[in-house]
Amino acid sequence: MALIELKHVVGGYGGAPILNGVNIAIEPHDIGVIVGPNGAGKSTTLKAIFGLLKVTGGTIEFGGENVANSLPDRLVPKGLSFVPQEKNVFTSMSVEENLEMGAFTRKDDFRATMAWVYEMFPVLAEKRRQPAGELSGGQRQMVAMGRALMSKPRLLMLDEPSAGLSPRYVIEIFETIVRVNKEGVGILMVEQNARQALAFASKGFVLASGQNRFTGTGPELIADPEVAKSFLGG
């Protein structure tokens, strides 16, 4: 059974729908990457899953139940986490407090998870007492991912994790994502660096005008001449 499955999802911010029937299915071991032109509804899809905009049609099944229009404080305990693209750290709070906020919904002892996050991002352990606002862009992205991992998600969603990062950090972030996936966390991400991301994606979705245009494994999509021509810049 799929970890998450979107069937014909329609939704938007109240006006004309932005999503016009999106289909996505991710297994627990998958890294799913959504690519597509600007305004295709990539980020909107993630927000729709996370209850941040109104879903008016279709179903979103997570762990076997329809979670369409559920709010984050119900989704996070179910094992769903989201890293927004911008403003994704609490700038006035320390790194450690940022991580604690990720574990807000957990009632159990989360120290082991925190140790795991520090192990994954050793630089954060060094700066645990520093306000997150003082960190560099790449380090902030790590804080944001760390915060999202603190709830021990089964599916981690990332909105353009590589945006605005230097090439060295882009590779580092992608490597971390693969590592997280190996630890048993499903990944669903939106990426502008389409070629680079599809290269390690087990599932790729090309969206345009709020609909699926192509679906396949990452390498398949890269190899498809039509996808390459229209969406990957030749």
Binding site: L52, L71, V76, P77, P84, V89
Partner: peptide, 12 residues
């Protein structure tokens, strides 16, 4: 600090 992110983090 950041109401949107607080909501996304699952804070009630």
């Amino acid at each position: 600090d950041n109401a949107d992110l607080a909501q996304v983090s699952g804070i009630n």
